[in-house]
């Protein structure tokens, strides 16, 4: 077993720096004169889908990805759960309930809690049904295989893909397009982002995925988070440039 290594020290430094940046961003947020950031386009499209679902009285589908409990190492599904929470808070009284499909047991359970919480908060627990949120597979492809038949139904108004998505998820977007069902893809998986970019679906690239702000919901959190990320990105860029200069000048080995 190793003691505290260089990696630990660097990560500690990054954490402290990040906290500092968060504090600075919080102070900057006090300045009302600063123009707010616009919502990421993908999340704006999710907002449109929510309204469309409400107007048309059709079901809105949500694919939550592979999950985070076992095989996938990203925190992306945490964000997908946040997106689900926002989405469910608007669609509990729709004619057709929103349906969620997970590719992992823990993800299915947690999203079940979120769906139940949305109905509970809207004081409509009697409308909650466990089948509104289902486990459809234990791997990326089996999850997709479970989601595709649901997408083929006629009473769907749209599909939101959010979570850890493999490049193979392109099949889902293709089928949705063939069914003329609008799709929005939001994933933290970079290869998934690259593959989904080739599709016609609006896709969230880079760290935009981690900044969910749908309509006026979660705006404060989004503005603060975006400010933090921008500041930290500047700091990192400056650090990289400095390191490159030191490396070239021979200071660093």
């Amino acid at each position: 077993m190793a003691g505290i290594s260089l990696h630990d020290l660097i990560s500690t430094l990054i954490v402290i720096l990040f906290l500092l940046v968060m504090f600075i961003a919080w102070l900057m947020g006090k300045n009302k004169k600063m123009p707010p950031y616009a919502n990421p386009e993908g999340y704006e499209r999710i907002d449109e889908l929510m309204h469309r679902s409400s107007e048309e009285g059709k079901a809105l589908l949500m694919g939550l990805g592979e999950g985070f409990s076992g095989l996938n190492g990203s925190l992306g599904d945490q964000t997908s759960l946040m997106v689900q929470r926002i989405l469910m808070s608007r669609s509990v009284f729709n004619d057709q309930p929103a349906q969620s499909y997970s590719g992992d047991g823990a993800l299915a359970c947690i999203s079940q809690m979120i769906v139940h919480g949305a109905y509970d908060k809207a004081m409509a627990v009697e409308l909650f049904r466990p089948e509104h949120n289902q486990l459809t597979g234990l791997s990326g492809l089996s999850w997709m295989a479970g989601l595709l038949p649901e997408l083929a139904r006629s009473d769907n108004t749209g599909l939101v893909l959010a979570g850890s998505l493999r490049p193979e998820s392109l099949i889902i977007t293709d089928m949705a397009e063939r069914k003329e069902i609008p799709v929005v893809a939001a994933t933290g998986d970079i290869s998934g982002q690259a593959a989904l970019f080739a599709s016609g679906a609006p896709v969230l690239l880079g760290e935009d995925y981690y900044l969910p702000a749908i309509g006026d919901i979660n705006q404060a959190s989004y503005q603060h988070s975006a400010r933090v990320l921008n500041l930290f990105r500047i700091l990192l860029a400056a650090g990289l440039l400095l390191a490159a200069f030191l490396k070239l000048s021979g200071v660093l080995p």
Partner: peptide, 9 residues
């Protein structure tokens, strides 16, 4: 009653 902006695709 909020108008749907643009329907995707």
């Amino acid at each position: 009653g909020k108008r749907t902006i643009s329907v995707l695709h």
